[in-house]
Design a protein around this nucleic acid. Structure first.
Length: 422
RNA sequence: GGAGAGGUGCCAGAGUGGUUGAAUGGGGCGGUCUCGAAAACCGUUGUAGUCUUCGGGCUACCGAGGGUUCGAAUCCCUCUCUCUCCGCCA
């Protein structure tokens, strides 16, 4: 959510931002009108309330029954007016906030302009794309051959886009989770194990609602959503709280499964484990003071990069352009790893500075030492990696001619010493 | 799932229709005293919205949302959360 003051005082800046994102900027006028109307009603109703408060106090002190009754009658009329105005106000307010909730965040000046993902910028590429003396296989061939991914059973149990990991495959995923969590802890993040189901307000606070309703699984009986990313419970963790200046920064890491309906991507990436309805992820998340968020962004990016680099996979870093930026993000770097079998770069990590966008929605503030007024914190999130895609890259890049897969050295402590999956 | 009790400021805890944004105690902050500290004493200590001649004014907030009333922390309804007991259970 943006600050309504931006619309009031700097509408051109908001229009500009929307255009950069290739969105319609007509809402800005709608919002400006609603805001004005809201304040107009507000000042009327508050004056009436002030009058009622004063007179009601007088009534409490009055002895003379007749003039007392007169005042009561007068205030009854005022009360009716107040009620009518309050109703109007509520309507305007509802419309205003629900419209505000559809506005994306303002892109950072550091985010390059671009219409769509084709204009994202490759910042750097690290590592060699592996050469094979044989035709490298895809993970959807390797997995069943080694009996570590079972697509048919997954479909049998749960339908399309579900699979079962088996034996060393399941263990490899568990090793990755443990490796990442342990690394992030070393990097200074505090581990959290959160609920995987959250309330509507929590999803809203993280900015996933109302925009992504169609991508979420919901238990309608209980008003609970399955988390689409750990970002949601981690944002909600400090919802409606005010930090002391000295409490910040807070850095968290959490493993969660992620549930996504993928309705919007129907038909895309149906093969293999690249895009399932359920996948595991380890997330990094930070709450920082506004003046520290640029530095925190670079730090989190370095941490994410280290996570990929230590696995020995070839990767490249993309900076997203304004047209491809996520809803709440002002700036985003993606990390992609190379997958030798399907011959493509896979997005495994995405680090964003969300500034005060989620904090405003989730009402997360702090008390600045030098200011009387509480301010919203800045939040940052980084997937310290979508696990299936890391699995894909490991399987496809570390495969050998006989169809076996070398386990990256860094993971072996969690693999019970297994060096090769065969 | 059943029965009961309860949610008040940073914390504890009063308050059952009218100068209560809220007693009292503790904590925090500032000060007096002291070589310094403790103790004691004095003062101060919420958030948000909105208007502003930038001094401040006004409005709202006692779990959430409705209702009754001239007036609600106080009365009524719904929801929610916590605690105790019973049942059930990984």
């Amino acid at each position: 959510m943006l600050d309504i003051r931006l619309i009031r005082e700097n509408p051109d800046m908001v229009r500009e931002a929307l255009k950069k994102r290739q969105s319609d900027d007509a809402v800005v006028d709608t919002l400006a009108a609603l805001d004005e109307k809201r304040r107009e009603i507000l000042s009327k109703v508050e004056k009436l309330k002030a009058e009622r408060n004063t007179v009601s106090k007088e009534i409490g002190r009055m002895k003379d029954a007749e003039s007392r009754q007169e005042k009561i009658n007068a205030m009854r009329a005022v009360g009716d007016k107040i009620k009518a105005l309050d109703d109007d106000l509520r309507d305007v307010d509802t419309e205003l906030t629900s419209t505000m909730a559809t506005l994306p965040n303002i892109p950072s000046d550091a985010t390059p302009y671009g219409v769509d993902e084709s204009e994202n910028i490759v910042l750097k590429t690290v590592g060699e794309i592996p050469e094979f003396s044989f035709e490298p296989k895809t993970h959807w061939d390797l997995g069943p051959e080694l009996d570590i991914i079972d697509f048919e059973r997954g479909v049998k149990i749960s339908g399309s886009r579900f699979y079962v990991l088996s034996g060393a495959g399941a263990r490899l995923q568990r090793a990755l989770i443990a490796y990442m969590l342990d690394l992030h802890i070393k990097q200074g993040y505090v581990e959290k194990y959160t609920p995987f189901m959250v309330k509507t307000e929590t999803v809203y606070g993280a900015g996933q609602l109302p925009k992504f309703v169609n991508n979420l699984y919901k238990d309608h009986e209980e008003d609970l959503y399955m988390v689409p990313t750990a970002e949601v419970p981690l944002t909600g963790y400090h919802m409606d709280e005010t930090f002391e200046d000295s409490d910040l920064p807070k850095a968290y890491t959490a493993y969660t499964p992620c549930f996504r309906r993928e309705k919007m991507s129907a038909g895309r990436d149906v093969r293999g484990i690249k895009r399932g309805h359920q996948f595991d992820k380890v997330e990094m998340y930070m709450f920082v003071k506004p003046e520290e968020s640029d530095a925190a962004f670079e730090q989190m990016m370095a941490d994410a990069e280290e996570t990929v680099a230590l696995l020995g996979l070839p990767y490249r870093i993309h900076q997203l352009c304004t047209g491809d930026l996520g809803f709440g993000a002002t700036i985003t770097y993606d990390i992609e790893v190379w997958a030798a079998g399907c011959n493509e770069w896979l997005e495994v990590s995405s680090v964003s500075n969300v500034t005060d966008f989620q904090a405003r929605r989730a009402n997360i503030r702090y008390r600045p030492e030098d200011s009387k007024r509480n301010k919203f914190v800045h939040t940052l999130n980084g997937s310290g990696m979508g696990l299936p895609r890391v699995m894909i890259a490991i399987m496809e890049n570390y495969q050998q001619e006989d169809g076996s897969i070398i386990v990256p050295e860094i993971l072996r402590p969690w693999m019970g010493g297994i060096e090769v999956i065969k």
